[in-house]
Design a protein around this nucleic acid. Sequence first.
DNA 1: CGCCAGGACACCG
DNA 2: CGGTGTCATGGC
Length: 279
Amino acid sequence: MLTMTIPNFDLKQIADSGQCFRMTALAPNRYQIIARDRLLIAEQDGDTFTFDCSQDEFDRFWTNYFDLNTDYSTYIAAIPEDDAFLQLAAAYGNGIRILRQDPWEMLITFILSQRKSIPAIKTSVEALCRLCGTPLDSTGTRFAFPTPEQLSACTMQELQGCSLGYRTRYIFNTAARVSAQPNLLDSYKNAPNALLQDFLLSFQGVGSKVSSCVMLFGYHRINAFPLDVWMNRVISIVYGDAFPLELYDGFAGVIQQYMFYYGRNAELLPNQNNPINPV
DNA sequence: CGCCAGGACACCG
DNA sequence: CGGTGTCATGGC
């Protein structure tokens, strides 16, 4: 068991930010997190956290995974004072960090995410993990995300059983291609953004939005700026289809997360200051 | 029950 | 380039 204090870090905000789909609440302020072949239980009380792993395990893996060496307050401070919406959004989601997730998992996950709700995405991802992922414990309930080899060994019928719908062939073909070239995705780790984007767009079922998500969440290109229905809604209603993206060059993806999280979650609250949903 | 979802794609003009 | 119809299916 490990206890520490961390600024700009909130488990619920990250779990509900739509960037990861394998972070589940076991109780309020208590989360199960599965990343690669690791399982972590984390508890939060304000800015104090407890993790069920050793300091060494945390330092070697989770510090980087949670991007804890980055100061997110500087991103928030860069938001103009006269942008009332982003000021609210950043305050509301000031515990969001861009997780450093696995490119392969992000590629498959965001291909299957298209035209699905977040709860439905989670259901499909868990079904894939249960179908062919490596068990993480003896309970038979927790599985790692399938490797390219494991996923490529599945039939179209098995994949279809995970509610992939018309995306089944996209997943099937991507698994076949990546498993045939084990170093393919890693070989783009240091590639320029434009080259990486072109590469991702070469997969069937990957367009501008999915490629942006894979770049942001899988390759940690924090200048990527995914535009989905929620983002388009915010930009249309709040900014009149003219968002000043140039103000956030180099970290637009962080700003994107504040906009998405606030736009998607805060409008459910009775917040009279919410420009998206004025009461 | 009807509607929508962290879209991509083919096709059109 | 920009606009339109189509693609399956779970959640709510």
